[in-house]
Design a protein around this nucleic acid. Structure first.
Length: 702
DNA sequence: GAGCGAAACGAGGAT
DNA sequence: CGTTTCGCTC
């Protein structure tokens, strides 16, 4: 193992008290934390249990744990390591009662939040304006992450008055069903530490050493947790890079890092500017882009590495061409797929790339996008399990109360919920009472009994039998497999496989022989896409720049360097947002060790529309001395554009008979828009109906 | 209440 | 373009 350089060494041996390590990309900041913890334990004789290390993902935590263990030569390392969210969960499970709430609670993910908010908006008094559920949640989340609450009634006008109203009913409902959202895991913990001295003192004494990685992406509530734990002059050791702050939309406050010196005047400050990851060319390219940001402390990364290959740049015709260029390059260079990453700005870009990888027969994994537990089938089962653990969770019960359909439709559900609300009892208990209530039809009463018995039996069994067995029973008794099979004839196979996959994940949990059903659910809620990335052998990784944070690869393709994509269209009117996009671009570029290839497309299909794309401003900022254009094609593209007769858009109207070069005769059903983007819907004689962009469709008017 | 097709809607990044 | 909601029929 190579020795640490002088800067790293002095950071590792920083004196007690607050310390800020400003560490550039690839400067070994994780290594510094690893060595710091090893040093605290090995040299300073600190009890490992007294160390709390907070990371951005659970994967980062477990990797850190492994490195420290092998560094110290121990099997089991008893430091507490994990994300702020898992730490919040850890604290709340033991102290929620201090806040007057049950220690047993469900964690709501964003789809739970969204459906709850949608319903709350529907049920709002008409005096409030209609708002979008997403906007409402965002407004609420923005306040929460700053540990703020809405001001008194009357302080707001228009939309904000509605948001403030929703803030109240939203949280009232969360409390009623004993649930917390992701923000609450942080916010409630921060409040617990801030307002409850006994709890704070307990944890402060237990964890005199607090370390925070990726400090630039902490929000105010997370900062409060760290500050309260460490106390004035405490051993708070934070590591971050202001150039990699890419989560302001999630409340991350870059000022936490910019103001550290002001917050902790006695803090030791260290700067790590030597990069050990990338070649000179890659570093020069990345530096030349990020140096265009005004709002930064400013540092200049350097490296002893050789220049390496120049940074490649390929401007493709369109998204397909871009994807083919990538797979062709991988094949031509003979790169092992697992040393390659393709990084993009939006998840939507994965589709075309996947297609190309499949066609080329290259193994790949898409990291992120739709999570496994977000799939409808899995979510249904999770909701059943949630009710077993938390009978007050009426939100989860209402989702599955009629899944598979058992005769409790919207009207009955509304009646049951009215009952529950009037009597202030959970939905499950309202269902219990409906069993014997003549006011309901016998069909409903039977269904109610069925659900109640199912929940009661499984609740009892959940403490007796392994989770996989419990799941089996659940599937059996609900007839869920039949339900899936019947509901959709086409892809029921994949969906049944999904169930099997879920069953094996349950069996895996059983094998670990620790933890309750409750912990299983909570663990799942906090598992990130990157956490589960490991284990897929010999595959290229396809992911967003955000997901790639903290990772590194030998070969990196950073794709879609176009205005509107990177920088994203929603950011280009605001200077601060453009700076964040630039940092995101920088993060993407600095993931590369040996090869970095940038690509852009001249045209791209966005939202089903073929658009002409401008080259990204960031591409223009890359130092041209280190760029090599790759425009000579690997396989000369055969230009075979069929010059089928083009229909004149003006003559197309509803009812016009047309002939499509590929699909044959049909009838125009509707015409949308005009000019280049005009679209028409055609119903063909074959019975098929499709939508076309007129200017790109070989059509003939009959 | 269930089931189906049509219409409308919304699409950034994620613990 | 894919998903959710709407509105109709049985």
């Amino acid at each position: 193992m190579s020795l640490l350089n002088t800067e790293q060494q002095s950071a590792v041996e920083a004196p007690d008290g607050p310390a800020l390590v400003l560490a550039g990309a690839g400067s070994g900041k994780t290594r510094v934390i690893v060595e710091r913890i090893a040093w605290l334990i090995g040299e300073r004789g600190v009890d490992a249990r007294r160390i709390l290390s907070l990371t951005f993902t659970n994967k980062a935590a477990s990797e850190m744990r492994e490195r420290i263990s092998s560094r110290l030569g121990v099997d089991k390392l008893s430091c507490w390591m994990g994300t702020f969210h898992s730490f919040g969960l850890f604290v709340l499970r033991r102290n929620m009662d201090q806040l007057g709430r049950s220690n047993q609670f469900t964690i709501f993910d964003d789809s739970d939040q969204l459906s709850l908010m949608k319903r709350l908006i529907k049920g709002m008094p008409t005096s409030y304006s209609k708002v979008s559920p997403r906007d409402a949640l965002q407004w609420i989340s923005g306040l929460k992450q700053n540990l703020e609450e809405p001001e008194e009634e009357g302080a707001y006008e228009g939309e904000e008055a509605t948001f403030a109203f929703l803030w109240k009913v939203y949280h009232r409902q969360l409390e009623t069903v004993s649930a917390v959202d992701f923000d609450d895991l942080i916010v409630l913990t921060a409040k617990l530490f801030r307002d409850h001295e006994d709890v704070r003192e307990k944890y402060r004494r237990w964890y005199p050493n607090v370390l925070v990685d990726e400090y630039q992406d902490t929000n105010h509530a997370q900062y409060t947790i760290a500050r309260e734990l460490a106390g004035p002059g405490g051993n708070l050791f934070v590591v971050g890079d202001e150039d990699q702050s890419i989560y302001s939309w999630r409340g991350a406050d870059i000022n936490n890092i910019l103001d550290f010196e002001a917050d902790f005047p006695e803090a030791s400050i260290f700067r790590l500017e030597q990069n050990y990851r990338s070649t000179k060319s890659i570093l020069a390219a990345a530096n030349s882009v990020v140096s265009n940001n005004v709002n930064r402390l400013g540092k200049n990364l350097w490296t002893d590495e050789a220049g390496g290959d120049k940074v490649g740049f390929y401007q493709a015709e369109d998204g397909h061409d871009e994807a083919h260029f990538i797979v062709d390059t991988i094949a031509k260079k003979g790169w092992a797929p697992d040393e390659v990453a393709v990084l993009y700005r939006t998840n939507g870009q994965a589709r075309v790339l996947e297609e190309a990888f499949r066609k080329k027969g290259l193994h790949y994994v898409v990291v992120g996008g739709i999570r496994f537990y977000d799939r409808k089938e899995i979510k249904d089962l999770i909701c059943y399990l949630r009710v077993l653990v938390n009978p007050a969770d009426s939100e989860s019960l209402r989702r599955v109360i009629n899944v598979p359909t058992r005769g409790i439709g919207a009207t009955t559900l509304a009646r049951l919920e009215d009952q529950a609300r009037a009597r202030q009892i959970p939905l499950l208990d309202a269902l219990r009472e409906a069993e014997d209530d003549d006011a309901y039809t016998s069909r409903v009463r039977n269904s109610a009994r069925e659900v109640v018995e199912l929940i009661d039996d499984l609740t009892w069994e959940s403490s007796q039998i392994p989770l996989a067995e419990l799941m089996d029973q659940l599937l059996e008794r609900t007839g869920y497999r039949d339900y899936v099979q019947k509901s959709d004839e086409k892809d029921f196979r994949t969906r049944l496989e999904l169930l099997d996959e879920f069953l094996s994940s349950c069996a895996e949990f059983d094998d670990k022989e620790e933890g309750s059903l409750e912990e299983y659910l909570q663990e799942n809620a906090l598992t990130s896409a990157v956490d589960t990335m490991e284990g897929v052998a010999a595959s290229a990784a396809l992911m967003t720049c955000h997901s790639a944070k903290g990772l590194e690869f030998n070969r990196v393709f950073l794709v879609g360097l176009e205005e509107g994509l990177l920088p994203h269209a929603n950011s280009i009117f605001d200077t601060d947002s453009v700076e964040e996009e630039r940092r995101l671009c920088y993060v993407g570029m600095t993931r590369a060790r040996k090869t970095l290839i940038l690509t852009a497309a001249r045209e791209r299909v966005v939202f089903g529309q073929r658009n002409v794309q401008d080259l990204s401003r960031f591409m223009g900022e890359v130092n041209p001395d280190v760029v090599e254009p790759l425009h000579e094609r690997i396989q000369p593209k055969v230009v075979l554009k069929s010059e089928a007769p083009r229909a004149d858009g003006d003559k197309l109207a509803r009812g016009t008979k047309v002939r499509h070069a590929k699909f044959g005769r049909g009838l125009v059903r509707r015409v949308v828009g005009s000019g280049k983007k005009q679209k028409i819907e055609i119903k063909f004689d074959t019975g098929m109906t499709r939508l076309f962009v007129v200017s790109h469709t070989p059509l003939e008017i009959l």
